[in-house]
């Protein structure tokens, strides 16, 4: 699957399905049933989406720095991290690679 967009520092990552990753995050953000299923078992929930392995890993680990570097849109990623009660300073440090 073609890589749609990689941010700085992610150029060496394998081709990924950024669309599916962002779709999963948007579903969790916007659909209560998806959100509940995701928080019950992220691993099981993610099986319904065609994610590349690095994407799946970053998602399961809630690795915000990597998810951002992969190209997840900020207005998808920040609401997703708010669902995880991530404070803004921590979020900004993560996406800035600090």
């Amino acid at each position: 699957m073609a890589c749609l967009r990689l941010r700085d520092g992610a150029a060496n990552m394998p081709a990924m399905s950024l669309y599916a990753l962002q779709k999963l995050i948007r579903d969790v953000n916007r659909k209560p049933a998806c959100r509940e299923a995701f928080f019950q078992s992220a691993e099981s929930f993610a099986k319904a989406y065609d994610l590349a392995e690095p994407e799946r890993d970053a998602l399961i680990k809630r690795d915000v720095r990597t998810l951002y570097a992969m190209g997840v849109h900020g207005l998808l990623l920040r609401p997703f991290t708010l669902l995880h009660q991530m404070p803004e300073p921590d979020y900004l440090k993560a996406i800035r690679g600090e």
């Binding site: 849109h73 900020g74 990623l77 920040r78 803004e88 900004l92 996406i95």
Partner: peptide
Amino acid sequence: HDPGERNHG
């Protein structure tokens, strides 16, 4: 403004 992005703020 740069919401959710590196230059947020």
